[in-house]
Computed example of a mutant assay.
Amino acid sequence: MSNRQKKALFCVCGALSFACVLGAAVAVGSPQWVKGSILCHTGAELVNATDSELEQFVGRVAYGLFHGQRLRQCGLGGRPLRFSFFPDLMGVIPMGLHVSVLLFCALLVVFSSVTSAFCLYNAFGSPYETLHGPLGLYLWNLISCLCGSLAMILFASEVKVHRLSEKIANFNERSFVYKTQAEQFDRSFWIILFVFLTHAVNILLVRLAGIQFPFQEAKEPELSTGASDLMY
């Protein structure tokens, strides 16, 4: 592959990585990670509500990593409330797990920025066969993929295993018990998945440019008469 084609591919990788930076940053601050419906279980049992009457006892909840809102209904109209994870829910949610999700999301933004910079450096600079060259292109994309996957796995565990929506719905509630009727991941969660897939595509584009995977082949050492060889 010619140098011009390699530069074009590296520019595409850099642009995709920069889009990942913007997408991940927007997703972290957005309250659209999970949306669902919550049932006022106590109120529905008190009046022995049937299927048609259950709608008066079904509220909504939507939240992100920092804040969200809920609407609780127990047959007497909705009670909307906005909340923040810090400091409102610090004693309710699995704090260590939630902070880990925030940490990996922050690392995803950082390493996506590093990936974008290194792709553009390889396109317009003169990289050497170290972390500035092909090894760096694979390494930073791989780390970004790892951060994105861990953020999604830990957040899914927090929502599904630790029943985060129910804990939010029952926060500061003494008279009624709420249960999650339905919940699904919202657009911000899928943006993180898109970022993960984009970095995986970047790895394939780097391979398409003719850059061998690190340590793919054990080559015999060649004699060198000067400085390190340029990548191209």
Score class of each variant (00 low, 15 high):
Ser2Asn: 13
Ser2Lys: 06
Ser2Ala: 08
Asn3Ser: 05
Arg4Met: 06
Gln5Phe: 07
Lys6Pro: 00
Lys7Leu: 00
Leu9Phe: 11
Cys11Gly: 07
Cys13Lys: 00
Cys13Asn: 08
Leu16Arg: 02
Phe18Pro: 00
Phe18Asn: 02
Ala19Cys: 11
Ala19Ser: 12
Leu22Asp: 12
Ala25Glu: 07
Ala25Arg: 08
Ala27Cys: 05
Val28Arg: 01
Val28Ser: 01
Gly29Met: 15
Pro31Arg: 05
Pro31Thr: 08
Gly36Trp: 01
Ser37Thr: 15
Ile38His: 03
Ile38Tyr: 04
Leu39Ser: 03
His41Met: 13
Thr42Pro: 04
Leu46Val: 11
Val47Phe: 06
Thr50Pro: 02
Thr50Met: 10
Phe57Pro: 00
Val58Arg: 12
Val61Leu: 12
Leu65Lys: 01
Phe66Trp: 07
Arg70Glu: 13
Arg70Ser: 07
Leu76Lys: 14
Arg79Cys: 01
Phe83Thr: 05
Ser84Gln: 09
Phe85Gln: 02
Phe85Asp: 04
Pro87Tyr: 08
Pro87Ile: 08
Asp88Ser: 09
Asp88Val: 09
Asp88Trp: 03
Leu89Ile: 06
Gly91Leu: 08
Gly91Ser: 10
Val92Phe: 05
Ile93Tyr: 02
Gly96His: 11
Val99Gly: 02
Val101Gly: 00
Val101Gln: 00
Leu102Met: 09
Leu103Asp: 04
Phe104Tyr: 13
Ala106Pro: 01
Leu107Asn: 12
Leu108Lys: 01
Phe111Met: 09
Ser113Ala: 15
Thr115Tyr: 08
Thr115Met: 08
Thr115Lys: 07
Ala117Glu: 09
Ala123Cys: 07
Ala123Leu: 07
Phe124Leu: 09
Phe124Asp: 07
Gly125Thr: 10
Ser126Tyr: 10
Tyr128Asn: 10
Glu129Trp: 15
Thr130Met: 07
Leu131Ala: 10
Gly133Val: 06
Gly133Asp: 03
Leu135Arg: 13
Gly136Tyr: 03
Tyr138Trp: 10
Asn141Ser: 09
Ser144Leu: 04
Cys147Ile: 06
Gly148Glu: 03
Leu150Thr: 14
Ala151Gly: 06
Ala151Lys: 01
Leu154Ile: 14
Phe155Asp: 02
Ser157Trp: 05
Ser157Gly: 12
His162Thr: 09
His162Ile: 06
Glu166Leu: 02
Ala169Leu: 01
Asn170Tyr: 07
Asn172His: 08
Asn172Ser: 12
Glu173Pro: 08
Glu173Gln: 15
Ser175Asn: 09
Phe176Asn: 07
Val177Asp: 15
Tyr178Met: 02
Tyr178Asp: 03
Lys179Gly: 04
Asp186Tyr: 08
Arg187Trp: 15
Arg187Phe: 10
Arg187Lys: 10
Ser188Ile: 04
Ser188Lys: 00
Phe189Glu: 00
Trp190Val: 01
Leu193Val: 14
Leu193Arg: 08
Phe194Tyr: 05
Phe194His: 05
Leu197Gly: 14
Val201Thr: 15
Val201Pro: 04
Asn202Gly: 04
Ile203Trp: 00
Ile203Asp: 03
Val206Phe: 01
Val206Ser: 02
Arg207Leu: 13
Arg207Ala: 13
Leu208Gln: 14
Ile211Phe: 09
Phe213Ser: 12
Pro214Phe: 10
Glu217Ala: 14
Lys219Thr: 14
Lys219His: 13
Glu220Ser: 11
Leu223Gly: 06
Leu223Asp: 11
Thr225Gln: 10
Thr225Ser: 10
Thr225Pro: 04
Gly226Ala: 15
Ala227Thr: 14
Ala227Gln: 11
Leu230Ser: 11
Tyr232Lys: 08
